[in-house]
């Protein structure tokens, strides 16, 4: 069964996570600190959009206010968690022993595997915009790992660049899943062909392109789900 859908900006799940009240132990920051999360996909009580697409269970477009806002140290098992920084600076701390700072176009893949904790913070003075993607692993309890890379906006201009997946130059995750990025000057036609058995989800971060003959303005998504999962 193939399901086509368009998720408009305002139709995504929405979470407003202030650093006070119920979230105080989870969300770091001064009392005015807040994380906002627009979820194209999410899970159980957090779900208000479409419940995942294949092995991708979370796609969150998040904004952290500056000066210390973020997620305090918290545990995961198994999930492969990726962060793609759109603007600002992300400080990532994990129990594999990595303390990292990622800026615009940087991204990481953190595979929690047999168990790992992480903290995600905006300690800078600018707002942080970051996209989080969670993918089911192919296997339980693999050794935890962390890798980072960078999308080069010059080398990657006007071509579809694979960031995560089984392609040269991309970060491999041992799963039938890819993340690619396109930064286009416009006025061009770009073709992406997913494997026949796979679905796809195209998210428009900025601009006003026509994605797959569907008009998709900024921060909208367009997808095809080749269930069942």
């Amino acid at each position: 069964m193939s399901v086509r859908f368009i998720l408009r900006a305002g139709e995504r799940g929405y979470s407003y996570l202030p650093a006070v009240g119920l979230n105080a132990s989870y969300v770091a920051g001064h009392p005015d600190g807040v994380i906002t999360r627009h979820s194209s996909f999410n899970f159980h009580e957090y779900q208000s959009g479409i419940p995942g697409l294949g092995v991708m269970k979370v796609f969150g477009d998040e904004t952290f206010t500056p000066n210390g806002t973020g997620y305090n140290m918290h545990p995961h098992h198994n999930f492969i968690i990726m962060a793609f920084v759109a603007s600002g600076a992300l400080t990532h701390i994990n129990t594999i022993g990595k303390i990292d700072e990622l800026k615009a176009n940087d991204y990481y893949v953190f595979s929690a595997g047999s168990g790992g904790k992480h903290s995600e913070l905006n300690i800078g003075e600018e707002e942080l915009q970051v996209i989080y993607v969670w993918v089911l692993p192919g296997q339980l309890l693999a050794p935890p790992s962390y890798r980072r890379s960078r999308f080069d906006p010059k080398a990657g201009a006007n071509r579809i660049t694979c960031l995560v997946g089984d392609e040269p130059g991309a970060l491999p995750i041992g799963q039938t899943f890819k993340v690619s990025r396109l930064l286009s000057d416009g006025g061009r036609r770009h073709v992406y062909r997913p494997a026949k058995a796979n679905g796809f989800y195209a998210f428009v971060l900025e601009g006003d392109p026509h994605a797959a003959r569907q008009h998709c303005a900024g921060r909208r998504g367009h997808g095809r789900d080749r269930g069942p999962h």
Partner: peptide, 11 residues
């Protein structure tokens, strides 16, 4: 059986 929970990844 072996299970994974989609919440935080606990198995």
């Amino acid at each position: 059986k072996k299970y994974l929970c989609l919440g935080c990844g606990f198995s």
